[in-house]
Design a protein around this nucleic acid. Structure first.
Lengths: 186, 186
DNA sequence: CGACGCTGTCAACGCCGTTGACATGCGTGC
DNA sequence: GCACGCATGTCAACGGCGTTGACAGCGTCG
């Protein structure tokens, strides 16, 4: 009862988190120093560590996987590939895609790699495996995970090249390709 | 004439490069210090910088893209997807795949990211674009690049899960999926 | 009132990548 | 033959990093 802790710590901790979020997103993990985050938040570097434990934990807390519902896997099996790709490339999902890319680029760090891996497993691959038919569903789910991961990472460089082609066409193309793995052999 | 330079610098420089190669591959870019590389090679940390310019340049020199011919793109168009995937997953290509994964994980660093990007362009995407039919060949080549990149990165976690399925089955599955992008719409 | 816990400050530690000044040995041009 | 240049190697130091420990203010609860 007594504890006011999580309820009302309004100022500094949140300022640090906000600075960290933008700076990590803009410059990456390594190029962002704890001292710079602290300065931007008007706080002491030591306080950053006090609040978040370490630079690594701060990074994971502000950029790590949200407790979001995970990608859409509910539609009809025959359109799952397209549904999935449309979900991932949805412009509204831009920030999530960028956060993912930032984490992959920092996956030099073992804790980051582990977080990424378990998030992919629990919120995507395991659920997908359950939906796929066939004996090798688990392997196919992993392969689809590889496809989706590759797409999210490459999208920032692909999008500007689209020109006249249009995002919808890219969704159709990649969706059909993913669908081949949803269906299995033939 | 006079210069013996590139020919006979046998000892220390190569020892440093060898230490660097194994340590970077085992522990990643960030977790490997210049001082540790130097110690393992029996050299002075300053000498590492003298020889290679910076830790970053050393990393790129020992793990960066080899001047290899690049992936197989010559076979018949109808089998290009499978050929490509078979090439990438070839056990003989293991070291290259690991080097790629190590670089992606260090792509926090801008120079690493740039090297990765231009290598993919010149040795893969541009050549692939030239081979693909259709008006949106360039976009399809980029999407295939995303697929292949995702596969190379995820393979270390996928391979142990194969069990009874077998690598050949994975090649068939992913190859068919890539083929969908080679062919375009239908 | 006194103990406690949370927030914040400050100086310091050890490690990092990198640099500058300095030695040394070797092949070349005068 | 010898001074020169140059590549190779050594050493101490710099500034920046993430993190820690000692300590101060301060509101709350007993």
């Amino acid at each position: 009862m007594s504890i006011t802790s999580t309820a009302a710590g309004p100022t500094t901790r949140e300022a640090i988190a906000a600075s960290a979020r933008t700076m990590f997103a803009e410059r990456g993990f390594t190029a962002t120093s704890v001292r710079a985050i602290a300065a931007a938040a008007g706080a002491d570097p030591a306080l950053v560590i006090r609040h978040f434990g370490s630079k690594e934990q701060l990074f994971l807390e502000v950029l790590g996987p949200t407790r979001a519902p995970g990608p859409e896997l509910e539609g009809p099996l025959a359109e799952l590939g397209r549904t999935l790709v449309a979900y991932v490339l949805d412009p509204a999902r831009d920030a999530e895609r960028r956060a993912y890319a930032t984490m992959v680029q920092a996956s030099d760090n073992e804790a980051v790699r582990a977080t990424l891996r378990t998030a992919a497993r629990t919120s995507f691959i395991d659920r997908l495996t359950a939906r796929l038919p066939g004996a090798d569903a688990a392997v196919r789910a992993e392969l689809i995970g590889a496809q989706i991961g590759g797409l999210m990472q490459a999208w920032p460089t692909i999008e500007p090249l689209l020109g006249a082609v249009g995002r919808a066409r890219a969704v159709d193309l990649y969706g059909a390709s993913v669908q081949a793995l949803v269906d299995g052999s033939h």
